[in-house]
Design a protein around this nucleic acid. Structure first.
Lengths: 134, 134
DNA sequence: ACCACAATTGACAACCGTTATCGGTATCAA
DNA sequence: TTGATACCGATAACGGTTGTCAATTGTGGT
């Protein structure tokens, strides 16, 4: 079983043709497209995936923690989730998003004390600013 | 000039009656309502504020960094922004959101090195889990 | 391989949270 | 006070997202 299929299986999703196409594209892609944009991109690349399927798959992948969601004005963008603790560097000017995984992040995150009874399942840090290109 | 009016002024907004109502409510409120919900809550409390005004004001406050936005399924919730660095503890079960401001957060965040040319303007950390009540 | 069943797909319609419009109103500096 | 400007709010319009459902596909048992 390929890497993509395994990823889908772990997310509790059958590795269908359409889902493989979507996941494969998200892994290769460095950008952060919306469902609408990804649907158009896949169409332009010669793939045939319905818009409903793109929405459903992205939603399922987000719930499974395979992709991160980035709210925009009246829409939501998606991006493959990097392995391990990392931060998102979001440029307020051009909208570009980069992942940053400094070594000290692991230790800093793990040493925090949370209220009794709160069980941590996930963590996410977004850093807003202006990138070097802007 | 009162605290609320000053807050609005600093955000570049005229301290009108409606905006005072909205900001005052957000400061007192511990929950995280959507624009639609806040509009209904204000109505129930006897205030007269148009839905458009609620949307516009929350949008402006979010852009000014006075409130934080929390995306939900197909809608956006708002919550007053706590002073200083803090994390959001978000319960995946009941949806409740708490602010947590551990002392070590300041130092950990400030010591991180970012790519050359990236100027940090804001930072946000969300921690997902299940709260003690759930 | 084959088959039966359940999960998935996709074109289309409906939904609904959000935004634009615009005449009337409140705010503020002079 | 007064003029200029920002703001309000009822309503209409918009558009991203989700629901629907018949046709198709993936899966596990035989």
């Amino acid at each position: 079983m390929g890497e993509v299929a395994g990823l889908l299986r772990r997310a509790g999703l059958r590795p269908t043709t359409q889902r493989r196409i979507i996941v494969t594209d998200l892994i290769d892609r460095t950008g952060t497209p919306t469902a609408l944009e990804l649907h158009a991109l896949l169409r332009d690349a010669g793939h045939r995936v319905g818009l409903s399927t793109v929405y459903r798959t992205l939603g399922a992948l987000a719930e499974a923690g395979v992709v991160h969601t980035f709210p925009r004005r009246n829409e939501v963008a998606f991006r493959r989730c990097a392995d391990g603790p990392h931060q998102h560097l979001i440029c307020l000017s051009c909208g570009r998003i980069e992942d940053l995984a400094p070594p000290q992040l692991d230790a800093a995150a793990g040493s925090l004390a949370y209220p009794a009874g709160f069980t941590v399942q996930g963590r996410r840090t977004d850093v807003y600013g202006v990138c070097a290109a802007c």
